[in-house]
Write a protein that binds this DNA or RNA. Structure first.
Lengths: 155, 155
DNA sequence: TTGAGTGCAAATCCTTTGCAGGCGG
DNA sequence: CCGCCTGCAAAGGATTTGCACTCAA
């Protein structure tokens, strides 16, 4: 299925659920389709929109993101930052997880069938219905030259 | 080791690292020692302080929390909420993880040696130094009567 | 004594909301 | 044409910061 096809499927889903298809919503969806590998923040999306000369207000960007999360089109990610990130939900893919470098904010995505299986088992044990699972490894990646500034005495 | 002893050890660590021991910092640490099982937010800590009639400004509360995280005394938790939560780091305990109910915000803590092991293996594979690991299961817990309001058409 | 730490208020960052007008169905 | 969506600006919640004063070492 081409990206274009997938976009159509998504738009159809919006219609089915009673949402209106506005150019703003369509463009936001396209942004994510075209940046599958990215973890975009609301601000990132807004900037990408600006670069395309698509005029969408920040408020609508936020509203659209919230709607897409509710519709399970996007997944909300928490990277221990002040703002959130979003990525496309891929129904066919197995859940994937993240390593987040605390120094440079670089993220590495990884899949691990074992972890997914364990997560489901645990959920079953505690009798809850899983909506999403996120395994996060906060780390320092040695590949990048990090300043080892001593944070002592910082107010 | 009693809680009192543990508090002393912590205070000593502060001194060793060149931080000053102020009554404010001491009290914040005690709050966490006395609420080991809780995931307190900055606001929670501030309220507990007020209840004790310990007068500490919100700003100092935030500054102290940041410092304690940097010193690895506290662990920062992200529960997909607008604010962060904190819990005491227990060097002797195995890392534990959380199930978060998206409807009622109730959290269940669990330990899983298998997950910890897998996390370390993955970190090794990607050649990063683990600072913290958090496995989060976002779910709906059936034990509580959740309103099944249909969110369709919400702006 | 001295500069790290504090309180206060203002500032900042991210996100949401009220309202009047616009446009999809 | 109806009322959902939008843009704008203002509000809101969480956290940080500037500044003058305080107090631990």
């Amino acid at each position: 299925m081409t990206t274009e096809d997938k976009t159509e499927v998504l738009l159809q889903r919006l219609r089915n659920e009673g949402f209106r298809i506005t150019s703003q919503r369509e463009t936001v969806i396209r942004i994510f389709q075209e940046n599958k590998e990215e973890h975009l923040s609301a601000e990132d999306v807004f900037e990408l929109l600006c670069k395309r000369n698509e005029i969408i207000s920040l408020a609508t960007t936020y509203r659209t993101l919230r709607m897409l999360v509710e519709m399970n089109v996007l997944r909300e990610l928490d990277f221990a930052e002040t703002h959130k990130h979003y990525e496309l939900v891929d129904e066919n893919a197995t859940p994937h997880h993240h390593i987040i470098c605390l120094d440079c904010n670089h993220t590495i995505e990884f899949e691990d069938e074992e972890i997914n299986k364990l997560g489901l088992e645990i959920a079953k044990k505690y009798n809850v219905n899983v909506v999403d699972m996120q395994f996060q490894i906060f780390a320092k990646c040695p590949t990048i030259e990090h300043k080892h500034e001593h944070k002592k005495h910082r107010n």
